[in-house]
């Protein structure tokens, strides 16, 4: 059951990502991007990271993609792109690079030194014993965010403030 779901979600992620890259229309690209992000959330659910899956749908497929679509429709950017790709030399380089990476991946997957296939741990209520163990509850996130990762949490909050002020300053019309 879970391998069927895995193949469905994985192929959905990869095909829609390919459609994002290859589509001529930027709005269609954004729509396929939403499909890809939601399918990635499906993969997160298969990994039993439910909190991250719902966060992915809320933040990425919700807020970020709405921002993208808003800007695409605001700017009307499709009128100048009569052909999709940059110069022929660069596309050749990119394709060669891609094929090389894919070859490395395939070679690695059929050689014997790939990653050990461990069984998936069953999640038990082990957070009292080991607070760093994987847990699907949001409580585990909160516990780590406010103890071990306190400083990065504060820095991230400050980063959001900086980004907000930066966006306001950038998008303000100059007075002169």
């Amino acid at each position: 059951m879970i391998d069927i779901l895995f193949s469905i979600f994985a192929s959905l992620v990869l095909l829609s990502a390919l459609a994002v890259v290859l589509n001529r229309n930027a709005v269609n690209s954004a729509m396929f991007m939403i499909v890809s992000l939601v399918a990635t959330a499906g993969l997160f659910i298969l990994l039993e990271a439910y909190f991250l899956a719902i966060l992915q749908i809320l933040v990425y497929a919700g807020a970020v993609m709405v921002l993208f679509l808003f800007i695409i429709m605001l700017l009307d950017v499709d009128k100048g792109e009569n052909f999709n790709f940059k110069t022929r030399k660069l596309s050749l380089c990119a394709t060669i690079l891609g094929v090389l990476l894919l070859l490395a991946l395939i070679l690695n997957s059929f050689s014997s030194n790939n990653l050990p296939s461990v069984e998936l741990f069953l999640i038990e209520d082990s957070s009292f014993i080991d607070p760093g163990a994987f847990d699907n509850k949001a409580k585990a996130f909160g516990q780590l965010l406010f103890t071990k990762y306190m400083l990065p949490f504060q820095v991230i909050g400050f980063l959001l403030l900086v980004a907000m002020i930066g966006v306001i300053v950038i998008s303000k019309k100059p007075k002169f």
Partner: peptide
């Protein structure tokens, strides 16, 4: 890899 190809191949900044 697909994302990298998109960055290298596309012309539209968005």
């Amino acid at each position: 890899l697909i994302g990298l190809l998109g960055v290298l191949l596309r012309r539209n900044t968005i």
